[in-house]
Design a protein around this nucleic acid. Sequence first.
DNA 1: TGAAAACTCCCTACGCCGTAGAGTATTGTC
DNA 2: GACAATACTCTACGGCGTAGGGAGTTTTCA
Lengths: 254, 254
Amino acid sequence: MTVYGGGGDPKRSLELLWGIQEDRPRRGPKPRFTLDDVVASALAIADAEGLAAVSMRRVASDLGVTAMSLYGYVPGKAELIDLLVDRVVGEVDISAELPDGWRARLEHVARQNWNLSLRHPWLLQVSSSRPVLGPNMIAKYDYELRAVAGLGLTSVEMDLVVTLITDYTHGAARNAVEAAQAGQQTGRTDLEWWEEYAPLLDKVFDPGKYPTAAEVGGEVGAEYQAASDPSRAFEFGLRRVLDGIGALIEGKRG
Amino acid sequence: MTVYGGGGDPKRSLELLWGIQEDRPRRGPKPRFTLDDVVASALAIADAEGLAAVSMRRVASDLGVTAMSLYGYVPGKAELIDLLVDRVVGEVDISAELPDGWRARLEHVARQNWNLSLRHPWLLQVSSSRPVLGPNMIAKYDYELRAVAGLGLTSVEMDLVVTLITDYTHGAARNAVEAAQAGQQTGRTDLEWWEEYAPLLDKVFDPGKYPTAAEVGGEVGAEYQAASDPSRAFEFGLRRVLDGIGALIEGKRG
DNA sequence: TGAAAACTCCCTACGCCGTAGAGTATTGTC
DNA sequence: GACAATACTCTACGGCGTAGGGAGTTTTCA
């Protein structure tokens, strides 16, 4: 359950991210691994067991080495997490041609971010104190900006639109991941959980006091057979957000 | 930097949240504090020094007591965090009359959530595996649903709209808090940070490869004198989201 | 060629963390 | 006054990030 936010020394992180090290050959014994090996090991753990399982000792032992030897590759855990983030951000396929039309393009961007978060749920728990300005992050930012290029928006507006899409997607994905993890953690399906705690909640929850919540909660629960349907919520919200952006773009044209 | 997600035993959390304990008077010595005292102590630490500083030992020592004695009040740290969350959620003023008009109402809801997150930044780092169904959380949910009542939306739609607003606000607040914390953590203003790392980034970043990011990033940086302006981004996005919701509502009417 | 420097990795240790288990003092009930 | 229940303390375990120093390996330079 322990979780780390990025935010090591930004200068050092930048250097590591962009691979400003070189000057091999150096004097001592050759390193047993590359920096990439270390990050890959951490990634495997994060994906399989969550960010909490990513400890220096664990990453090291998976590599067959002691914890302290990692400090030859990375100044500390925070920087390792920064590298981890940029690495999975690199998974987003930014070589693909963007679809035609701003709406399809933004939808594509949103879905890419959504999928990325579901594939690496721990990503949502990394709250970097500064954005990790790694090569993949910048490439992705460029890709996303291109989705709203040529629409008559100012640079600032382009940035704001992309931020809106990614912010919203992030929030929606967070709900989805929480719901999914809750199910697998407790070993119960949503339905089972609902059935177990509904009576307890009933005892304590006064429908007369909160009639709106009671009615909506009841109908929503009945419809989803769960407390929520994050995937549907994402689709719904995305449509509204795109509608809102559409109003902006058309306003610009008129 | 260490952070905890909620998600203790949901049953026990529910009981604590709703105060199903009573059956005092009991036999032994009287407890030195109330459960509220413990939560208040944890809250003070979280607000002042962040969630990472909230350890059982620390909370206890602030109360003048050993760590283990907290386990008489709370089954574990996870449940304490659950209580912490519901407590600050209770700060939202839900007795206030909602403004007239769905748009003003939803805007009000969004701003309340925004302010709550900025007042208690650690809230954004608590990723409960299940929603904390405390009394305050439910009261807030009810309050927020009332903002979209009577508009001809189905229950499910009402829930989706509220989820959209809170999801978006959560994501936007997250950026704001990160930016604010980055400034105070490193003791640098945004401008200073920008000036320090721009040259380093310049050396590594190829504008020819990412012309869109280069141009937009440059103009955005010049306009904000910083990498971003989260507050402005929030306002911008909120307007779009409300526009999108407006389209839905008007579509329902037509 | 041999010494020195540079480097990787290991071992040990410190001060944190959440919390289990057992002990001690205090309080209420019979 | 005896007994049981309770609140709290102490000690300890196994984890964490990482500082410091030592050992062995490889390259460089005299």
